[in-house]
């Protein structure tokens, strides 16, 4: 028995393909008909958009990567990076909504898990991070540094949100795989080359 990604249940492949399609939309917004490469020369897109790419680990072959492309010009990179952070935001919003729905349907000692104060506090923490990052995204004159900080906040909030799913967040059929893909994309496209003062929950 193996756990190659081809053993994933069909719905998971569907979610990943939808995510890959949304990533392609980011490319389309920035470079119609083409792709945008990262400052370090990496390009990540759906396997359909990058047929010559190698599969990105942990994405079941739905995402592919190629190296040594010339870095994108400034306008395209900016448009793509903005779209990418907003895609991460939407993904986290879906993950939070899914967690609330799931916890409302699970009970412990006869009561919904969503009634637990610790659980409610965790939900609120993620919602607060979503609210703040949405406002940050809407600020005028976005910069690479700001996008990277927003990505860092979304990664931290995503890790908090995954706690709400327990072990199921770690299963390939859970939301952890999608958020991992978003984290990897940010590490590839939004890292400015200098270490930050803070990362994740540090």
């Amino acid at each position: 028995m193996t756990t190659t990604d081809t053993t994933l249940p069909a719905p998971v492949i569907g979610w990943l393909e939808a995510f890959a399609g949304e990533l392609d939309d980011c490319h389309e917004q920035a470079a119609p008909g083409g792709t945008v490469s990262s400052p370090a020369g990496w390009t990540i897109a759906s396997a359909q958009r990058l047929p010559a790419g190698t599969p990105v680990p942990g994405t079941s072959g739905t995402l592919a990567a190629v190296r040594d492309a010339p870095p994108a010009g400034d306008p395209a990179a900016r448009v793509f990076s903005d779209a990418l952070v907003r895609l991460h935001w939407r993904l986290l919003r879906d993950v939070l909504d899914g967690a609330v729905s799931r916890l409302d349907g699970r009970t412990s000692e006869g009561a919904p898990l969503l009634g637990r104060q610790l659980v409610r506090g965790t939900v609120a923490d993620v919602a607060l991070a979503l609210s703040e990052t949405r406002d940050l995204l809407d600020l005028p004159r976005p910069t690479a540094g700001r996008r990277r900080r927003i990505h860092r906040d979304l990664v931290a909030a995503g890790r908090t949100a995954l706690v709400l799913y327990g072990a199921s967040s770690f299963a390939a059929e859970g939301p952890g795989r999608l958020l991992y893909a978003a984290e990897l994309l940010g590490n590839t496209y939004l890292h400015t080359g200098e270490p930050e003062e803070g990362a994740g929950r540090e």
């Binding site: 984290e183 990897l184 590490n187 400015t192 540090e202």
Partner: peptide
Amino acid sequence: AERATLAAADLLGPASLLEDPWLG
């Protein structure tokens, strides 16, 4: 463990999760 791996991905630079399979 989570904090250390998040920090490592940042400290090792852009695309480190793609370029460094052990870190990934």
